[in-house]
């Protein structure tokens, strides 16, 4: 019986993790596009996820690219993804790209992850084990995602860096107290235990990436003086995108209103792209 209790305690202690996500730079900025609407209708996008040592390995980059493909496909874009074999391989770096026989994309979105900070104190781990995990061990990491969006000719339209901080508390005491607070005190959506950090990060990241892509699209249109976009017939349909509405503003030239809500069937988004620190990286 005692052995069972000990095993249960150890099992509970080993899984008692609370990961807290904190947006550091720009991830908490308000988003004005709805990632559920076809904001990028008719666009050909190339999403390039560049693996980079500490930030994202090959597998994580592929996962990120798949995630972005789904995000932008849901918004009406035709998305190609590319994960170069190694850092710098196949990346634009602002130069002209020879597309050869490949279809020229409207926008090239390049993502590079960096790990800015990593902290994992062995002293705290010793204290944690000595106190039977009542004192939490804290692992902290800050990641940056550099985003650059260019047109097919390599002209830089948008450049931004999104930073997120993840703090992982390992300890039965911390987990139990937060679990109780989630259950009894914290309002809905403010909980810390479980996969809340993934949900929150995913919402912020998808929102910002959608906004950046939309801004790049608009900037490209403005820089081309609103040249009419080439009509690309959608499979099974004829004609181009629907005409946009107009909103009148005082004595000023008009500000266009958002297009009518679309109704294509959309697959739900999957798990968030870059995982929080797992402690597996030194």
């Amino acid at each position: 019986m005692i052995r069972l209790l000990v095993i249960s305690f150890v099992a509970a202690a080993m899984s008692a993790c609370v990961t807290v996500y904190q947006p550091v730079t720009t991830l908490q900025r308000p988003v004005t596009v709805d990632p559920g609407l076809p904001n990028l209708e008719g666009l050909n996008l190339l999403v390039r996820c560049v693996p980079s040592g500490d930030g994202a390995d090959q597998g994580e980059s592929e996962e990120l690219c798949q995630n972005m493909q789904q995000l932008y496909s849901n918004q009406g874009a035709k998305v190609e993804t590319e994960v170069p074999e190694e850092e710098g391989g196949g990346a634009t770096k602002g130069g002209f790209e020879d597309w050869g026989e490949k279809a020229k994309p409207d926008l090239v979105i390049e993502l590079r992850a960096r790990r800015l900070h990593w902290e994992n104190s062995p002293v705290l781990w010793a204290l944690c084990y000595a106190s039977l995990t009542l004192v939490p061990a804290i692992t902290e990491a800050t990641f940056a995602q550099d985003v650059s969006i260019r047109d097919a000719d390599g002209f830089l339209l948008i450049q931004d860096t999104l930073q997120a901080r993840f703090i992982r508390y390992f300890g039965l005491g911390f987990w139990a107290v937060n679990g109780l607070l989630d259950l009894l005190v914290r309002p809905k959506g403010q909980g810390l235990v479980g996969n809340n950090h993934k949900t929150d990060f995913s919402r912020d990241f998808h929102g910002q990436m959608s906004q950046l892509a939309f801004h790049a699209r608009m900037r490209e249109r403005v820089l081309k003086s609103f040249e009419p976009e080439p009509v690309r017939p959608v499979e099974g349909q004829e004609g181009g995108p629907p005409p946009k509405g107009k909103a009148k503003k005082g004595s000023a030239p008009p500000v266009t209103a958002p297009p009518a809500p679309p109704t294509p069937s959309r697959a739900p988004l999957t798990a968030p792209p870059p995982p929080p620190p797992s402690g597996s990286k030194p």
Binding site: P30, V31, D34, H215, M218, V222, V255, T256
Partner: peptide
């Protein structure tokens, strides 16, 4: 010099 947004979904100035 005119500064504007050209689409209601934007949060950048042109």
């Amino acid at each position: 010099l005119a500064l504007m947004i050209v689409d209601a979904r934007e949060s950048q100035l042109h």
